[in-house]
C-alpha cells in the first residue's frame, strides 16, 4: 500500500438525538497506524465508528481519505473499509459456512471462506447452524468477515467483547498483521487491548491524548 493511504478527520462533530456527542475531533492516521477509542458508555465511540463508516452523517467537519473528501467518492471509500459493528449479522437458521459465504459473495471476497473460518478458529464449526455458536464464537465470525477481502481501513466496534484469552490474542494478532500490511485500524474497546504503538482517543470527558490527535469535547 502506498503512503497516500492516509485518513484525516478535521473538526468532526456528531449529534445524536439533539445531544452533541463530540465536536472538533481531529486525527490523522497513516498506513499502519491505529487509533483506540476509549470512553464511558454513551460517549459516542460507536457513533464515531458509524460516522467513519459513512453510515452516519457528520454534523460538521470533513473526512479525507487518500487526499479526497469521502463524500466525493462514497462507493470508493466504502470499498476500502471494513466495519465490524457490535452486532454479528449472523442468521441463526443458516450454517456458519453459509453465513460467511453470503458476506463473501456480497463483498466479492478474494479469500476462500474456509480459510477465513480456519484463521479465526471456527473451521470445526463450519457446518453448524449459526444458532449454536456462543457469544465469543459469534465475535470470531465477525473477525472472519474482516478477512474475506483485504481492505486498508478497519473500523472495529468492541472487537474483543465476549472473546476468551485465545480469542483476544487472535484479535490482537489480526490487527497487528493488518497494520503490518499497511492497514489502518480504528478500534473501540473497554478492555485493555495490548496494542503496540497505538494512539488513544478518549471521548466524552474532554480529555484527549497529546500530540496532533485532538480531543473530543463533552456534550
Amino acid at each position: 500500500m502506498t503512503p497516500s493511504h492516509q485518513l484525516i478527520a478535521q473538526g468532526i462533530a456528531c449529534r445524536r438525538a439533539e445531544r452533541l456527542l463530540f465536536r472538533d475531533l481531529n486525527f490523522t492516521l497513516q498506513a499502519g497506524q491505529a487509533l483506540l477509542l476509549r470512553g464511558p458508555n454513551g460517549s459516542g465511540k460507536s457513533s464515531l465508528l458509524r460516522l467513519l463508516a459513512g453510515l452516519l452523517p457528520a454534523e460538521a467537519g470533513q473526512l479525507t481519505w487518500r487526499g479526497k473528501d469521502v463524500r466525493a467518492d462514497r462507493a470508493g471509500y466504502r470499498s476500502d473499509l471494513a466495519y465490524m459493528g457490535h452486532l454479528d449479522a449472523l442468521k441463526p437458521q443458516l450454517l456458519v459456512l453459509e453465513n460467511l459465504q453470503f458476506w463473501a459473495d456480497l463483498v466479492g471476497a478474494t479469500v476462500p471462506v474456509e480459510n477465513a473460518l480456519a484463521k479465526v478458529g471456527l473451521g470445526p464449526c463450519a457446518a453448524f447452524p449459526a444458532q449454536h455458536l456462543s457469544a465469543g464464537q459469534k465475535r470470531r465470525f465477525g473477525l472472519a468477515r474482516l478477512l474475506l477481502k483485504p481492505v486498508p481501513i478497519w473500523l472495529l466496534d468492541e472487537p474483543s467483547t465476549a472473546l476468551d484469552a485465545s480469542g483476544q490474542r487472535l484479535a490482537l494478532d489480526l490487527i497487528t498483521r493488518h497494520r503490518a500490511a499497511g492497514g489502518i485500524a480504528i478500534i473501540s474497546s473497554h478492555d485493555d487491548l495490548a496494542l503496540p504503538e497505538v494512539t488513544t482517543l478518549v471521548l466524552g470527558t474532554g480529555l484527549a491524548s497529546p500530540g496532533k490527535f485532538g480531543g473530543g469535547g463533552s456534550a
Binding site: L55, Y83, G85, L87, A89, K91, L106, R145
Partner: peptide
C-alpha cells in the same frame, strides 16, 4: 426487520450492492 435487528443491514449498506 431481521436484517435490521442482527446488524446485517449495516453490512448491506456498506457492501458494493
Amino acid at each position: 426487520a431481521g436484517d435490521l435487528e442482527d446488524g446485517s443491514l449495516d453490512g448491506l449498506a456498506l457492501s458494493p450492492l
